[in-house]
Amino acid sequence: MSEQGTIDAAEGLFSQTPEGPRLLGSRCATCQTPYFPRSEACHNPECENSDMRDDTFGPEGRLISIALQNYPPPPPTIAADPYATYGVGLVDLPEGLRVIGRLLAEDPEQVPVGGLVALVIAPLGQDAEGREVLSWQWKPV
């Protein structure tokens, strides 16, 4: 861990709960549509009464695709220094949500599509002040 401490990549998107890491979102009580991040209104055109409640998602899902980031992206993306290619997973959660997230894997090229992944809160890299920037990531299980 960095001496400068840690900072979340964005506020209010994820949390380390007593049950483990969770994504913080919402769900419409009328049509059951899940949202991540939180949504103030239901966007389902078939839903006749937007009724949003806070909900949490995770900790497990299935990888349906992977992209590798072979070059360092420009800001505001945070990555390891020196840069190392990372993977991004497209993950279907049993709660009916499809979520992207960085893959936490030693060799992202070897991670199979179709496998199970677990939600973890882990550093993406350090910001300009030397703080570890935390985000949700998908770790193959």
Partner: peptide
């Protein structure tokens, strides 16, 4: 948020569709 919390520029987005 997609760039800040994950880091998936345009080519990565297309790569994800391609891999699928």
């Amino acid at each position: 948020l997609r760039q800040r919390c994950v880091g998936l520029p345009g080519p990565g987005f297309w790569a994800m569709l391609t891999r699928a």
